[in-house]
């Protein structure tokens, strides 16, 4: 339970961080290449981790959905 809470907090934090990075790119009139590369690397790592976490959550949700459907059938 604690692990799930921490993981979901991480996902939320990661997404917030990612959102800041995309905002940074969108608000730059002229891209600072070095800073941009740094942020791209950071963003790729965040996207990868978030995708994985999201996939895990989706799988868990599907399991729950199956259980709910089974209960309804009974």
């Amino acid at each position: 339970m604690t692990e799930t809470k921490n993981s979901s907090k991480t996902l939320r934090d990661d997404l917030a961080h990612l959102s800041k990075i995309t905002d940074w790119f969108e608000n730059q009139a002229e891209i600072d290449v070095e800073e941009g590369l740094k942020k791209v690397k950071e963003a790729v790592a965040l996207i990868k981790a978030s995708r994985k976490r999201l996939k895990d959550i989706e799988n868990e949700f599907e399991e729950i959905q199956k259980e709910v459907n089974l209960d309804e059938d009974e």
Binding site: L15, S19, T22, F25, I31, G36, L37, V40, V44, L54
Partner: peptide
């Protein structure tokens, strides 16, 4: 969708 959007923004703005 948010992740996809972020991915798109990052890809478009990636200096490489």
């Amino acid at each position: 969708q948010k992740l996809s959007y972020a991915e798109k923004v990052i890809t478009l703005n990636n200096p490489e």
